[in-house]
Computed example of a mutant assay.
Amino acid sequence: MSSRAAIRYAKAILHTANENNTQSVVFEDMQSVQNTIEASRELQAVLQSPVIKAHDKKEALLKIFSGQSAATHSLIKILVDNKRTSLLANVAKSYIDLYNEEQGVKVATVITAVPLSSELESRVMAKVKQLTNSEKVTLQNEIDPEIIGGFILRVGDIQYNASIANQLGNLKREFSKSI
């Protein structure tokens, strides 16, 4: 969950992007920023570290994200200047959520024990489109081996849990009630 500060920064950059008509460019930047930070423990540590100087963080981030737009570079500079670099991943996530909401895109998250096959992904996508009455749907697949099998589907406030772990938990509760 994003902090209120991250949401404020995301709203500000979305507003600027709307004024400059660069929303989709910044959207791609934010996806890249979020994926890069999530994939690198070292980068996460640098962003969180109070020991590393702000100037060094700014220099490193601008080199890492050198291919991004001027709006993204501006965001990085502002976060560094305000000593808020630890929020960068949350700002990116908040921007992505706000952009999708503004574009009417529904984001569905499917949690499975193994990666979805392309056939199963298309079947889940069709079901999500039917449930949401929306043609603009993106699907995120998260892997969680602890659910054993089946899936958990989240679309907005709705969650459908068809995991084997959930079914085993229900059986365990039923048995403990009858004892």
Score class of each variant (00 low, 15 high):
G169A: 13
D157A: 14
N82R: 15
L139Q: 11
I158D: 12
K63R: 11
I111H: 06
V110A: 07
K127S: 10
K58V: 04
D56E: 13
S86F: 11
N18P: 00
G169S: 14
M125P: 01
Q167M: 15
N141A: 09
Q159Y: 11
E59W: 10
V51N: 00
A92I: 04
S69E: 09
N100E: 14
L98E: 03
I143S: 00
Q31N: 15
E38L: 13
A162F: 07
K136M: 12
F65P: 05
V80Q: 01
Q31K: 15
Q34K: 14
N18D: 06
N21E: 14
F151M: 08
S134H: 10
V124W: 13
L43V: 05
K129W: 14
A165H: 09
A54W: 11
Q31Y: 14
L168S: 08
I76G: 05
P145W: 00
V91Q: 03
L168F: 14
Q130L: 09
A108L: 04
D144R: 02
H55E: 13
V110G: 03
N100M: 09
L168A: 07
G150L: 04
V91F: 02
Q159G: 11
S94P: 07
N82A: 09
E101K: 09
S86Q: 09
R4G: 05
M30S: 02
G150C: 04
K11M: 02
N161V: 06
F151H: 02
L171A: 04
S66F: 02
E38H: 10
I148K: 07
L168R: 08
A17L: 05
R173W: 01
A71Y: 07
L79C: 01
R154A: 01
R154V: 02
V105E: 08
K77P: 02
P50Y: 12
E19D: 12
L120Y: 13
E59F: 13
A17N: 03
E174A: 14
L88D: 00
V155Q: 03
N90V: 02
I76C: 05
T16K: 06
N82F: 04
K93W: 05
R154F: 00
